[in-house]
Design a protein around this nucleic acid. Structure first.
Lengths: 341, 341
DNA sequence: CTGAAAGCGCTTACAG
DNA sequence: CTGAAAGCGCTTACAG
């Protein structure tokens, strides 16, 4: 059990040294040498005494002091659109775990997908002297990433990608293709897409993957069949309303690039007396824990969110080590349920 | 725009001092004196030159160095069961905002409601030398809080309360009462409760508030009418199954202390061919954003989650200031929807 | 094998 | 009004 007490003074290197009749530098050297041999840090006997006392006193080095000396804070900054989005919260769980395993701590802040806020929070993180950034809210049309790059700030994107910068994401193009294959195979020929926010690669890639495959299969997909929307339930509902309003082209299936939008769309269908799964198929994306539990269970593309988060940390640590990295796209799988059975 | 660059060296107090031909201590004094007058820190002219240069150079003090000197890190540790729980994610948004406004940064970690993990993560936070802790996963039957208290660790509970420790929570007793009033008034006389985890005050308080009021109204509520369960959809579904299994006492209404459990219960009802809102009323708790969007919209008790999070920060800062504080319980409101109309 | 010094960037009481 | 020193806790190259 550690003895750190914000209320009281924590044990320092000097405390240990005094008690052992050694110089603090010797204690420090021992505590940094390999656990096995003292490797030139001190005699085996001394090393053992030092380690022993450090343990019983519950010594843990002051990270602020260490940072000041080593110029490394072991702090990572994480920026997400919003943590109340299940997808980002889950990716963050992966980030937190992987960071902790590597002895890093993480700050996380919400940008609400607002570009001013993104900049502000980024500066707060940098003012805290984080070693690097994990950015989960990248906008395709923003110059922020290029600026950070110019300032030599180490960062990795997660969740959304932007060409030219390293990222760990779901293979969203593939995800869209899986949905196209599935709906085509189920016999649907007139479909509509609820596309999400056009500034997010997740939305754009899922839509283009779907569209590309759909057309490869011989399907028709006019521009007007894709409605861009917010990622939440309200956005999905409004988009579905818009799609239903066009009576000349009533689709038999809806692909929403996000489960929440899909749930909103289901609400709109219900309001129009359309039975999900019977009158109209619906497929979502991310397979959030609710999808399987909905009154009419929702087909959804499952993305490996935890693993995406963990990968982002791994990649950032490599960047901090001065290594070259390449972007990662993890493959999703389709879970078919009642909504499109 | 700040000039912090992990890649390069940041501007220091000494840099500013050199450029101005002043001593670093003078620069420091100016930057810490009130913005208006230099208040004995330096002559008005000098003060102005210092502030001017600090601005153009994008100077921001090194927090690690400042911490080392002041013995304050301006770091808060936040522990939650899981951030992928919408309720905690939202409270954390409030915490993050309020902390940032007070120039504090926050670490947040998931404990998954596991007592070992709670201890481990707490120690990691303390090893990072946080000034205080915001604990969102307190267990009624744990000794951790008493131990922290003995070690003089400053902390405030959020979300869940435990007698004897300061907390910012929803008034869950009142929340339970609101539901009892509502169901009674709608004519229900046989009801069952999906109680959640008995180690969480949220669950216990919502159940006791409900039970107390129900009995005050003249209702009957046997022990067996309360089923304890996990907080998630699976937990709610299983609990509902258990309730339906008892054919001698089929309730006409279900109160689930959590929206996710309520959604799970709705799934179970559907499997039994019971129509939610017609054959059986359902009421949830927290009014998460999905409640209103479900195919049959869910009645739910709305708790002021953002404000609870913000309050917890305010309270912790008061504790750090050495002030006495008293626990806060924010009043919830009931949103009636189709599921119990 | 161990000690002593320097210094990371800052703040604060003390001089003058 | 401004400077100089001390010191927070640590690490690291340099002596001996």
């Amino acid at each position: 059990m550690s003895e750190n007490r914000p209320g009281e003074r924590a044990v320092t290197l000097k405390d240990l040294a005094n008690e052992l009749g050694l110089h603090p530098s010797t204690v420090s050297r021992v505590l940094h040498s390999g656990t096995e041999s003292a490797r030139g840090a001190a005699s085996p006997g001394t090393a053992e005494r030092v380690r022993q006392l450090a343990r019983t006193r519950g010594y843990s080095p002051d990270p602020q002091a260490t940072s000041l000396r080593t110029r490394r804070t072991r702090l990572l900054g994480v920026i997400v659109p919003r943590l109340s989005d299940l997808v980002l919260a889950t990716m963050y769980e992966g980030i937190e775990e992987a960071a902790a395993e590597a002895n890093y701590s993480t700050f996380v802040m919400n940008s609400h997908d607002d570009q001013d806020t993104q900049r502000r929070k980024t500066e707060i993180m940098l003012a805290r002297r984080v070693d690097g950034l994990i950015i989960g809210d990248a906008h395709l049309d923003s110059t922020l990433l290029a600026e950070l790059s110019n300032r030599a700030v180490p960062f990795v994107l997660v969740n959304r990608r932007v060409a030219g910068f390293p990222s760990a994401t779901c293979d969203d193009l593939l995800g869209g293709e899986l949905v196209a294959d599935h709906l085509w195979e189920r016999g649907h020929r007139i479909v509509a897409v609820i596309g999400g926010e056009p500034y997010a690669s997740t939305a754009v890639d899922r839509v283009s993957g779907f569209a590309r495959r759909w057309r490869d299969l011989g399907g028709h997909l006019p521009e007007s069949a894709v409605v861009w929307s917010r990622f939440d339930t309200i956005g999905g509902r409004d988009a579905a309303e818009e799609i239903l309003r066009d009576s000349t082209r009533r689709p038999t299936a809806l692909f929403a690039v996000n489960d929440f939008a899909a749930i909103g769309a289901m609400g709109a269908l219900r309001a129009h007396r359309l039975r999900v799964g019977n009158d109209m198929a619906v497929v979502g994306f991310n397979d959030t824990s609710l999808a399987a539990q909905l009154p009419v269970s929702l087909s959804s593309v499952r993305s490996p969110m935890l693993e995406i988060g963990r990968s982002a940390v791994r990649m950032l640590l490599q960047v901090l080590d001065g290594k070259q990295i390449t972007s990662l796209r993890l493959a999703p799988t389709l879970c078919v349920r009642e909504s499109s059975a």
